[in-house]
Design a protein around this nucleic acid. Sequence first.
DNA 1: AATGTTTCGTGATTTATTTCACGATAAAAT
DNA 2: ATTTTATCGTGAAATAAATCACGAAACATT
Lengths: 215, 215
Amino acid sequence: MLKKTDKRKVSKSTISRLFVYLREVSKLANLNIRTISSAELAERVNLGAAQIRKDLGYFGHFGVSGSGYDIKELERALKRILEKNKNCRVAIVGCGNLGTALISYGGFQKQGVEIAAAFDTDPKKIGKKYGGIPVQPLDKMPGAIKAKKITIGIITVPAQNAREAVDCLVDSGIKCILNFAPVGLMVPEDVTVKDVDLSREIETLSYFVDNNVVG
Amino acid sequence: MLKKTDKRKVSKSTISRLFVYLREVSKLANLNIRTISSAELAERVNLGAAQIRKDLGYFGHFGVSGSGYDIKELERALKRILEKNKNCRVAIVGCGNLGTALISYGGFQKQGVEIAAAFDTDPKKIGKKYGGIPVQPLDKMPGAIKAKKITIGIITVPAQNAREAVDCLVDSGIKCILNFAPVGLMVPEDVTVKDVDLSREIETLSYFVDNNVVG
DNA sequence: AATGTTTCGTGATTTATTTCACGATAAAAT
DNA sequence: ATTTTATCGTGAAATAAATCACGAAACATT
Ligand SMILES: NC(=O)c1ccc[n+]([C@@H]2O[C@H](COP(=O)([O-])OP(=O)(O)OC[C@H]3O[C@@H](n4cnc5c(N)ncnc54)[C@H](O)[C@@H]3O)[C@@H](O)[C@H]2O)c1
Ligand SMILES: NC(=O)c1ccc[n+]([C@@H]2O[C@H](COP(=O)([O-])OP(=O)(O)OC[C@H]3O[C@@H](n4cnc5c(N)ncnc54)[C@H](O)[C@@H]3O)[C@@H](O)[C@H]2O)c1
């Protein structure tokens, strides 16, 4: 296992891929398959075999030369690396089209992601429930975030309100934000923002369609 | 301007950032600001100034030494590079939580992205309309895609139905797919798939929260 | 007109990420 | 027991992307 100080040497993309491996390996475990080679796993997740071996290599030796990886063992190892025992709790800020779609999505639970609170400024929405989660006003945020041990904020408010949403999350002690609003957000050094810009994804794809270039 | 054959030298990330620059520059144009330096623009979009200059450099000389970029001119140039005059039409496959959120989203229009058709297999959904778009069965897809000149397919069906959705899109002539289902999709060589894996984004973020490492 | 200041454009450099390639190892076969 | 085969783990090489740094160009000031 990697020492704490070495963790920053493992790239974000590696970690992100480990979740893909875990997902696939869990699927295989349910099918009662015993072992898998890096090449077979690579095929299933559309990645290179060397990539998989290298990614795993940062954390230890999980495979057996000649026969590949024991699926149960690999699953256990990945769960340990990714701390998938520990649930992660998130708050949704902005209960519109997208926010409510996320709240209503059943798939997060299975991945250990719990939507633990939802916020909105619209008085007509406050008090409503989506997927059992009541919509609260912003001034309840600091308390709720602490009480529910929420560590991630998800911003699904219109771009022009994103500033307010971020400030409120940061003031509530949140250090990690997933932002769907199409604006660059300025945050303190110790806060991480990951942007998901869906319009941009589509536009970028469309550029490559029109130019017949595989991106 | 870059020759057609050179386009594959421009990275996907560069193209993706150009859309960000365009968005910001359009905003500035509306505020009647005349010029901006790469450093100021960089600040606004949370990127490096050199990055911006380099990205633009692939396509021509748009700036003026000493005074920066003329905003109107840069906006025009970016629109030309990105062919933002040409609208891009997409089809949504799977009108559940996420699919309908996308259909109902007003922001795509502004970015020149038109949702031109929607499909589902659920008989209860077929015929319904979301944001004015009627939900059609899968067997109408090839015809609708050709008739509406749709070039991008968006997959918002459950993972276990993604295979069917992809096959149907590919058979309808689609070469570019944005996939929200958390599965690796096998497609022919000439088809591009961009995955948007929201669970994975959250999980990856959460890993870095817990480990106090800024990703 | 000369001088100082700003900012671009871009080759060179650095950093990050992926892929290659092969020795080592373990299982299977003879 | 030896050979063959499969497959890992990983340093080295290749590729891709971001950042630096500086000459040249344009503007501003005196
Ligand atoms: N819906 C989509 O498919 C989609 C696609 C791409 C991008 N986005 C982006 O995601 C964000 C949300 O989109 P949407 O379609 O759900 O918008 P929406 O208008 O349907 O919902 C926004 C919600 O945020 C609430 N809100 C406004 N200011 C707030 C604040 N300061 N604090 C808390 N809540 C606040 C509003 O009351 C509303 O309920 C937008 O930034 C949008 O650009 C959405
Ligand atoms: N909703 C979210 O916030 C969210 C978050 C992360 C990932 N996702 C992923 O996005 C996808 C959609 O999620 P959702 O919550 O909207 O699911 P959903 O169950 O609400 O909707 C899925 C829709 O697809 C339709 N469908 C099923 N098979 C189909 C087929 N072969 N062709 C056309 N339509 C078909 C269903 O009838 C249903 O209307 C899933 O793969 C999910 O894992 C969703």
